[in-house]
Design a protein around this nucleic acid. Sequence first.
DNA 1: CGTATGACGTGCA
DNA 2: GTGCACGCCATAC
Length: 84
Amino acid sequence: METRFTKNVLSVVERIPSGQTLTYKEVARRAGNSGAYRAVGNILHGNHDPKIPCHRVIRSDGKTGGYNQGKKEKIKKLKSENAI
DNA sequence: CGTATGACGTGCA
DNA sequence: GTGCACGCCATAC
């Protein structure tokens, strides 16, 4: 079930350019719910679409957070595009 | 709306 | 700097 918020979040993440990283909070703010960063993580967790560069979404602490393919791969991808 | 969960964030010890 | 607890919102059951 994709609600407007979920679709928005996916769209925002999909719009993230290469080498650019956004925090869950920023994504939530762009999606229309600045305080729903918790839900953002949940949405990405349930959405494993290859068109969604979820690896470009990191935490505010500078940590990568999680990844359906493995946080290790996430870090690798980020370093590969010089985003981190 | 009730309960439970989560790839988070901030605050405080 | 590290660790723990609380809060916050959306989705699933």
